[in-house]
């Protein structure tokens, strides 16, 4: 399997504080990867660096062999913890915006996802509940035929029904030739979908391992391992 995302000795500082400290790892195509860590461990920073909206203080990041920049934005689909829409938009405006700027945006898939998520195309985004907004964000991000998807806390702060719907959508709609990184600290519902997990704490990479290997070699579920590490 080809190497998709590579972090080489990446350090990210905000003032004196190190958000990421000498992080090195790589991921290959065709996997769902859980990026796990407690609040403030550096999960969002790691994703923002890979998405190209933040610059590393030192080190190098590449996606599909190219340094992060305009070209990698074409093959990376990032769902941040902030809106991907603007207040004036309706749901169909948000779809049109993504269609206009991303050549890999699949409008048919987007419409399918809207139906699946029970979203109305004429609704204003400001009138959507938090759960519905998360669903819209996910529809926008997964409707692209990207090589790398990154979802920052996609189930944070939504009710269990919306959570189930979001997880089903991830499994149903993501492109199997690509990879998807999902950051979370809520493991109960989500660990079933992971192939691999990356654990970070205080900006340092603690572990990168296959889920099966953790279960067989360590005899633990991901949730148990998480509680052990972050206790």
């Amino acid at each position: 399997m080809s190497q998709l995302l590579q972090f080489q000795h990446v350090v990210k500082k905000y003032g004196r504080k190190k958000a990421l400290d000498d992080v090195t790892f790589q991921i290959t195509s065709g996997k769902i990867i859980g990026l796990l860590g407690s609040n403030g461990s550096g999960k969002s920073t790691l994703m923002k660096l890979a998405a190209g909206v933040t610059q590393p203080s030192s080190g190098h990041i590449s996606i599909n062999g190219k340094s992060v920049g305009r070209e990698t934005k074409l093959i990376t689909s990032f769902m941040p913890d902030k809106p991907l829409t603007e207040d004036w938009m309706r749901v169909d405006d948000a779809i049109a915006f993504h269609r206009d700027f991303y050549t890999d945006f699949d409008e048919v898939k987007a419409k399918e996802m809207l139906d699946f998520m029970k979203l109305n195309a004429r609704d204003r985004v400001t009138t959507l509940s938090k759960g519905m907004q998360e669903r819209l964000q996910l529809s926008l991000v997964l409707s692209r035929d990207a090589k790398l998807y990154m979802l920052d806390e996609p189930i944070g702060g939504v009710d269990p029904v919306a959570r189930g719907k979001i997880l089903d959508a991830i499994v149903e709609y993501y492109n199997e030739d690509s990879s998807i990184i999902v950051s979370t600290h809520l493991l109960n519902d989500i660990e079933r979908i992971f192939d691999e997990v990356i654990l970070i704490r205080e900006g340092k990479l603690l572990l990168q391992e296959d889920v099966e290997s953790i279960r067989f070699n360590r005899g633990k579920s991901i949730d148990e391992l998480f509680k052990e590490v972050y206790a």
Partner: peptide
Amino acid sequence: SAYNRRLLPVR
């Protein structure tokens, strides 16, 4: 500060 703008593959 808008993600939808900063993530676009434009110069």
